[in-house]
């Protein structure tokens, strides 16, 4: 219980600190709003061997100064052609997380350098068709395996940057460390898990390069109250 109370206290402190630091800035406005983006890394997959056809989209919003709620969604269609089999994997994934900007920003500045935590899941179907069983004596046997449907879970740690190149238009990258929490014990073991990467290891590293656009529906006014108070004092 004491540990839980400690964790709760630290978490509360982390949530309160940004609000506190907000009061220390000068008067300025910072645009808020939902940022919608596309991850360019999956498109690189089209040029890989074997090709990985996919796309990923990201959406985040600053719900508190320096704290961002993030949703990342994507799909992957992967085919691996070998001499004796062709492997197919088709799936979608969804990630939820929170990113935190850990460097001080000037008022009005939207660039962030962040770390984040998240949880992810997906659903994918894998199969192998055709599968050729070589037999030099009786003759080859052609068959297929699957399809098998699986739902994995994994956790993610991330760190990266977002830079506002033009007003409301952002570019950025982030590195992801992914920890596989659960993969259904079905055979065959998947070659790849969409959104996670190669399934042979319980840890994988990924990379996102994001172009995003912020819909600036919300405008935050920082320290307006403080200035108003000062003006009242002068009067």
């Amino acid at each position: 219980m004491r540990i839980l109370r400690y964790i709760f206290s630290v978490t509360s402190l982390l949530l309160v600190l940004p609000a506190f630091s907000q009061k220390q800035g000068t008067e300025a406005m910072r645009y808020g709003g939902i940022r919608i983006g596309v991850d360019l890394v999956p498109f690189v997959g089209y040029f890989l061997t074997p090709p990985q056809k996919g796309a990923a989209f990201t959406m985040d919003a600053e719900f508190r100064d320096g704290w961002f709620a993030v949703i990342h969604a994507g799909y992957l269609n992967f085919n691996k052609e070998e001499a004796d089999y062709t492997y197919h994997n088709d799936g979608r994934y969804l990630k939820f997380g929170i990113n935190h900007n850990f460097v001080p920003r000037e008022p009005g500045e939207s660039e962030i350098i962040f770390w984040g935590l998240g949880i992810a899941t997906g659903v994918f179907t894998q199969s192998a068709d055709p599968v050729v069983v070589r037999n030099g004596y009786w003759g080859d046997y052609v068959t297929s395996v699957g399809p098998v449907k699986m739902r994995p879970f994994w956790a993610e740690m991330t760190a990266g940057i977002r830079v506002e190149m033009f007003r409301n238009f952002f570019m950025g990258w982030n590195v992801r460390g992914r920890f596989l929490l659960q993969l259904p014990n079905k055979t065959p073991e998947p070659y790849i898990v969409p959104g996670y990467g190669y399934a042979g290891k319980s840890f994988s590293v990924g990379f996102n390069y994001t172009l995003s656009f912020r819909i600036p529906y919300k405008i935050k006014v920082i320290e307006k109250k403080k200035k108003e108070t000062e003006e009242e004092e002068k009067k």
Binding site: A128, V133, T187
Partner: peptide, 9 residues
């Protein structure tokens, strides 16, 4: 049975 993705089935 999948032997491995390197070896095949």
């Amino acid at each position: 049975r999948l032997l491995s993705y390197e070896c095949g089935y």
